[in-house]
Structure formats: C-alpha cells, structure tokens
C-alpha cells in the first residue's frame, strides 16, 4: 500500500510502486486534470505540483512522492469558484482544444507562487517545457501576466506544513 497526499487529502492505494503518478491520479483517484501527452516528459500535459514544484507526472514514480503533497488543477478551484489562474484563463479565453491547459495552469501556478512579478522572459522560459499545438501561446501568456501583475500567489499553505 502506498500513502499519497493529493489536493489536501490522504489516500491509501494498492498500486505497483513504479506506477507513474499520472496513472494513479487519473485511474485510481479519477482526476481528469493531468493528461497523458507523451509519457516522456517532453510536453508537460501531465504537469502537477509535488511539494510546490512542477513535475512530469507521466515519469514520476508514485513511490518517489513520499509524504510530499501533490496538487493538481482540481485543487485550484471549481467551475463555480475558479482560482485566480483558472479565472484568468477563462477571462482571456486562453484555450483552443484545451488538452494542454491544465498542465499549463499548474506550471504557471508554481512560478507565481515563488516569484512576485516575473518578467516576460522569466514567464516564457518557465513555461518552455509545456507544449501547445493549437497556438494559444499569446493568450496563455496574457492570462499568466494578468495574474502575475497581482503579486505572488499564496502556496498550498497548511498542506506543506502537514507534509
């Protein structure tokens, strides 16, 4: 059994230890946010936060997570109460097909929790691991910029403490 802390909840799961975190999130916890894109850490569609840092969940063995908290896009808000980045992505309509977007939001979240007012170049370099094929880059950048202008985003807070 593996104990996993996801979006503020503890889970005990009967999964093979080498299973990539992505499959546990999607199949065992039935979370849709993290997506399978390449399975090789080259596209970022599977990006989630482990202890506040963006990771490629398609490569990250679930057994390596340990007690560190995992956060997915589901932790940031809901349709009724979207979080700041989710709201900015909606306001900017920063989606075409949207398949990459949950990963985009999580990678941006990691930046905005650690850097207040990142520069344009910092944002672009930070987002570089994540691919968008529809060409929605201009809007994704605009949405991130808007939230960045409001100052640093609060982290997960208590989750980190409990870890």
């Amino acid at each position: 059994m593996i104990e996993l802390h996801v979006n503020g909840e503890a889970h005990r799961l009967d999964v093979a230890p080498e299973t990539p975190l992505l499959y546990v999130l999607r199949d065992d916890l039935k979370l849709n946010g993290a997506k399978f894109g390449c399975g090789m850490g080259q596209c970022g569609a599977c990006t989630v936060l482990v202890d506040g840092r963006p990771v490629f969940s398609c490569l990250f063995p679930v057994s390596s997570v340990g007690a560190r908290p995992v956060r997915t896009v589901e932790s940031l808000g809901t349709v009724e109460r979207p979080g700041p980045l989710q709201k900015a992505f909606i306001d900017h309509q920063a989606v075409q097909c949207g398949y990459c977007i949950a990963g985009m939001i999580m990678r941006a979240q990691a930046l905005l929790e650690t850097v207040a007012h990142p520069s344009e170049q910092q944002i672009r370099e930070h987002m570089s691991p994540n691919l968008c094929r529809c060409g929605t880059h201009m809007r994704i950048l605009a949405a991130i910029r808007e939230v960045a202008a409001q100052g640093r985003l609060p982290g997960a807070g208590p989750q980190k403490v409990s870890a």
Binding site: L31, E74, V79, P82, Q86, F89, I90, V95, A102
Partner: peptide
C-alpha cells in the same frame, strides 16, 4: 465565452 472552457480549466471530464 465558450461553453466548454470552464470544465477544461478545472479538471472536468471534457475529453
């Protein structure tokens, strides 16, 4: 605003 975007940015079943 597009009808499909809210679910896509919050982890709703969309695909």
């Amino acid at each position: 605003p597009r009808v499909d975007i809210p679910a896509k940015v919050t982890g709703g079943a969309a695909y």
